[in-house]
């Protein structure tokens, strides 16, 4: 009896140790990511600037994700319109469709959906690429050949995602609205001109600006997480896959956390 109690206490103690270790690990990772991000902001201002590589990365990120982001955005616009149509018709409020879909897409669905897709596609890509470069000593090779790999690899990629995610968001917004307009045109006989003028009538600058600003943060988060995970990847080829996976998970989570904070902050400015 006493022994049983002793072992269970020991088990409890062990479990608590596990929890504490996980918590500590969480804080360590957060701290390292913060240091990594801080290093980005410290180094981004100073030459050498790798403009060519930056342009290449921008092109790669935009090109790689355009089709995917466009397709999902298009489908999202169609689905959102189809799903809400019956309810709006019930209230006789079909004419509110452009406003509703426009606001839903521009404020929330466009940025978050695009960011999540890019976290999956771009974030994992960057993570895996840098991790494999790390494993095969390519990062070291860069360093010994006189190129600062942090500048050449990390700063270009993070800057590229920070610039390109908002661009992709705007593109996704437009395509989503296009999908929605097609549904309205086919099912409700609303002309494209009317649809878009209605959207523009209801959308305000105050809707677009916060969503673009938060897209920049999403882009930065995706880039920095992918680079951090890849750059600090442990050796070994199986580490590459794990790195890509972790990069996606952390980046997606961070996108939601940032979105939450962004909505709270936006709320303040809306009321003013």
């Amino acid at each position: 009896m006493l022994r049983h109690a002793a072992t269970s206490t020991l088990l409890l103690f062990k479990n608590r140790l596990v929890v504490l270790r996980l918590l500590r690990q969480f804080f360590v990772t957060t701290g390292q990511i913060s240091q990594f991000a801080a290093r980005y902001w410290r180094e981004v201002w100073f030459p050498p600037y790798e403009f060519q590589e930056l342009l290449k990365q921008c092109f790669l990120i935009g090109n790689k994700s355009m089709a995917l982001v466009g397709t999902t955005g298009f489908i999202m616009g169609i689905v959102l319109t189809l799903q809400t149509r019956p309810t709006l018709i019930e209230f006789g409020a079909q004419s509110w469709m452009p406003a509703m879909v426009g606001i839903a897409i521009v404020r929330e669905i466009g940025p978050v959906l695009t960011a999540l897709i890019c976290a999956g596609k771009v974030g994992s890509g960057i993570g895996a690429e840098l991790a494999s470069m790390k494993v095969t000593e390519q990062i070291d090779a860069m360093e010994v050949s006189g190129t600062n790999p942090f500048k050449y690899l990390v700063i270009t990629r993070v800057t590229a995602t920070t610039i390109m995610i908002p661009v992709l968001v705007i593109m996704s917004d437009l395509i989503s609205l296009g999908g929605s307009a097609i549904v309205e045109n086919l099912k409700g006989g609303v002309s494209f001109t009317l649809y878009f003028s209605k959207v523009l009538e209801f959308l305000q600058f105050g809707d677009l600006l916060p969503s673009i600003i938060k897209s920049f943060f999403f882009g930065f988060a995706i880039g920095i997480i992918g680079c951090y995970k890849g750059y600090t990847s442990s050796r070994g080829t199986e580490g590459v896959g794990r790195t890509a996976n972790e990069a996606v998970v952390i980046a997606s989570l961070l996108v939601f956390v940032l979105d939450f904070i962004a909505v709270l902050v936006t709320d303040i400015f809306y009321e003013l």
């Binding site: 804080f27 990772t29 701290g31 902050v265």
Partner: peptide
């Protein structure tokens, strides 16, 4: 590093709560 991570999380939480409160009590 762990301490830095803790501070970052704490800062983010405080920021979030403050933003929420300000938003609530305009």
């Amino acid at each position: 590093t762990a301490r830095l991570g803790f501070l970052v999380i704490l800062g983010a939480l405080i920021f979030t709560v403050t933003a929420y409160l300000i938003g609530q009590k305009q």
